[in-house]
Design a protein around this nucleic acid. Structure first.
Lengths: 186, 186
DNA sequence: GTCTATACATGGATAGAC
DNA sequence: GTCTATCCATGTATAGAC
């Protein structure tokens, strides 16, 4: 891949941003083309259909989180990794209040639409849950590591949704503060 | 209102169901009209625009939760009310896995679209948070009642989103079991 | 109040010149 | 590989007969 790095990646970057802000259905190919500085008809040279852009979008997010996990795995212990994960959400308070979690909102929308894209997006959550479970297991929580992972991801996804729905980053502050404290008690 | 109870309420009921399953944008007026057994053109006698249907939809959900809170307020203590709230989510495991929380998914979609409907939907969360806060306060948690309310709603909304994204009701089971246990410890 | 036919805008996708 | 012009399906909304 990447024989056309310039235009193709510009299109993907534009799609990532616009879809996060507007949703997938409401983002038109003309929007994406315009934001990337590419004529509309030329988009189809890089992506056969709009759904193909959706796939690239999902792959982008999956790759992004994989990279983050790789970085977190490099340093610190399990507890500090979990804290870093929560802190990332806290740092993104403004964006989350404005447009929600890029992955969570995309998952919700694509699952209502159905189709193969829905499963691919959901896989990002599966991978994240697996990584979280590893961290909890490293903390000695062998029996309930999966439940703790689910609880943490639920709380973060939920507060992102609430902060987005009420357009108020303060909710992110409060819940992430609670979760950070909770992690220290484990 | 309600001078046209039959057709109008049939349209709203159909809209509630279809929008939950497909999302607001993907649900066409023809879909709603067809499901309600009303000719397409006649829909516009009851609702001037599609957005007007959206308003009725949001009002329906707001009224539904207001009714539920009224019932819960009739009986039991604060702890059992909170347990009933969590249990409602647990009971809806199948629907949540298939289509997500009707309010949460609607909030997410409408906030990406913008406009006045977004705020009206978000208000459902505000009302729910207020009621939850009252219950926690009744349990003697005066200082952190609001934080506990946010935590509970976040966890439930988050696990609904995850179960929906992974199309698996088991996630709902696990997180609601945890939350039910947590409430008993307060 | 009800319903059919249709206008109009939007947006995904293609044709074909360059 | 690039870009303009255009096709065509979909869906909201309206006109107007009944």
């Amino acid at each position: 891949m990447n024989r056309h790095p310039d235009k193709r990646s510009r299109l993907v970057d534009a799609a990532v941003r616009l879809v996060h802000e507007q949703g997938f259905a409401r983002t038109t190919l003309a929007d994406i083309a315009g934001a990337a500085g590419v004529p509309l008809g030329n988009v189809y040279y890089y992506f056969k259909t709009k759904e193909a852009i959706g796939e690239a979008l999902v792959a982008h997010h999956a790759g992004h989180y994989a990279t983050l996990r790789g970085q977190w795995n490099q340093s610190g212990d399990a507890r500090s990794r979990l804290a870093a994960f929560v802190q990332m959400t806290a740092d993104n308070r403004a964006v989350l209040a404005r447009s929600g979690c890029p992955v969570g909102t995309l998952c919700a929308e694509l699952h209502k639409a159905g189709g193969p894209l829905a499963e691919q997006t959901g896989a990002i959550f599966t991978e994240l849950l697996g990584w979280l479970e590893e961290q909890f297991r490293a903390l000695g929580r062998d029996t309930d590591a999966a439940d703790l992972a689910l609880h943490l991801l639920s709380a973060l996804q939920g507060v992102s949704l609430i902060a987005h729905s009420l357009d108020d980053p303060e909710y992110v502050d409060r819940e992430t503060a609670r979760l950070t404290g909770w992690i220290q008690t484990l």
